[in-house]
Design a binder for these strands. Structure first.
Lengths: 241, 241
DNA sequence: GTATATTGTTAGATGGGTCTAACTAGATTA
DNA sequence: TAATCTAGTTAGACCCATCTAACAATATAC
């Protein structure tokens, strides 16, 4: 398997796509643009580049998902981010948003060795409470006295995170429960058919009957009872309510 | 005082200039190019940009030195590098070159808070030997087991350091000692005069008489005895031998 | 089913950082 | 003093990442 070289920027895009798809199954340009604070047109360029490298499934004017290779790469980037983040919060006692911002800015240069050792350090701190307690106390006492970067001229780019609802596909809603429709990830005829049945964004949907072996499942939308094949239901993303 | 925003790249140039001038009083394009592994023409562009920001004294076809503001900025960048470097060597037990390479790649995103807390951590480790010993041992034991970045696709740019001789100005050579002339940092008539006296690169120079209150000082080059004003001697950089 | 948002795309421009190739000012050598 | 070497500069090109503005395709609302 061939190693892929990614610029820090493309790593950011990949990481964003991983985080969005983890919540929403698929990623849209707009979401990526918002997360990374760039314009939609910049996202298009980046997506083309990631698709060229075989890291995402991307077709013009459609949703984005990670390929197998892209998922692997994205997880690597994400892991580096989390290691740094955890060192900053768990060992250095930095507040959440500081930790996240700094991790974003520093994660790209992390070598394998640094990752390994930092992970080991995190474990060592967790597994040796009595000993690390003193170290932590001493750290806190010291850190008050230090004015490290006074007069420093580095202004890191701020990183924001927007809290978003977790989405599920319709098959994973239990019978008797309701949900709010967020989007249909299918395309073409399939998607059109569902929309014509009244399955549109914002509508409340009640799952009437759905069991592992049921196909189709029964749902109720806009006071109509509908039958959906599991295959169709899988393309309907909803927010639990 | 106004905050200056520097790109990571310009921070690297500034750091390189700091390190070179620390050894050689002044920096030349070539040295910077070698240190950063870029071409001379790229250095010219960067120097213009740093001069625009008031961080270096730079005139076409001449030596480079840091301005007061540039020195302050460079020290900040350098401090971040050293904090990371020390965390990597002293706490994570990474070998010197790994630590240096990773520090180069990660230093640019370090926020003030991260700097402060990391410094405190370093102090805590130094001041609590008994407690941190266990943490270190545990870290080492753990780190063997972790294969953190397997399949990772990030290839950090390598960073090399070239060992170079420390240079001194002629005033700081003790009477009776010899040195090899490296360069004259003066310009124009002053420089020409010294060259005509036989003070050229590679020549051996013997300091015959030089004391804090002596002016001029006495030196011997190419079997000639010369008198140099302290002002002149200050522009002659030599390597001790 | 038409009108209006919204979302994604294209095209073209800009800025940062790099390169190669050609040139020039200074320094070294003969 | 002239010939040569070296270090630094310029010019012109490229790539990456971003932007704005105009446009096209979908969705949503009426």
């Amino acid at each position: 398997m061939q190693k892929i070289v990614l610029s820090p920027t493309l790593e950011d895009y990949l990481e964003a796509i991983l985080q969005i798809t983890a919540k929403h199954q698929v990623a849209r340009s707009m979401e990526i643009a918002e997360k990374l604070h760039v314009k939609r047109s910049s996202v298009t360029v980046a997506l083309r580049s990631l698709a060229d490298k075989g890291l995402i499934n991307y077709q013009v004017r459609s949703f984005v998902t990670l390929t197998e290779s892209g998922l692997k790469a994205a997880k690597c980037v994400d892991k580096r981010h989390h290691i740094l983040h955890d060192v900053f919060t768990d060992i250095l006692n930095l507040p959440e948003d500081d930790a996240d911002a700094a991790a974003c800015a520093m994660e790209h240069g992390m070598t394998e060795n640094v990752c390994r050792k930092m992970t080991a350090l995190l474990m060592a701190f967790k597994n040796n409470n009595q000993d690390t307690k003193k170290v932590s106390d001493s750290l806190e006492a010291n850190s008050q006295k230090i004015d490290c970067n006074k007069n420093c001229n580095y202004i890191p780019s701020p990183v924001f995170t927007k809290s978003e609802a977790q989405l599920f596909d319709l098959n994973s809603i239990n019978p008797g429960e309701s949900a709010i429709i967020d989007r249909i990830i299918g395309t073409g005829v399939l998607k059109k058919r569902l929309r014509e049945m009244g399955i549109t964004r914002g509508q409340k949907i009640l799952v009437v009957r759905s069991a592992p072996l049921d196909d189709p499942i029964q749902v109720r939308v806009r006071n109509f009872n509908l039958s959906l094949r599991r295959e169709e239901a899988a393309t309907v993303l909803v927010e639990k309510c």
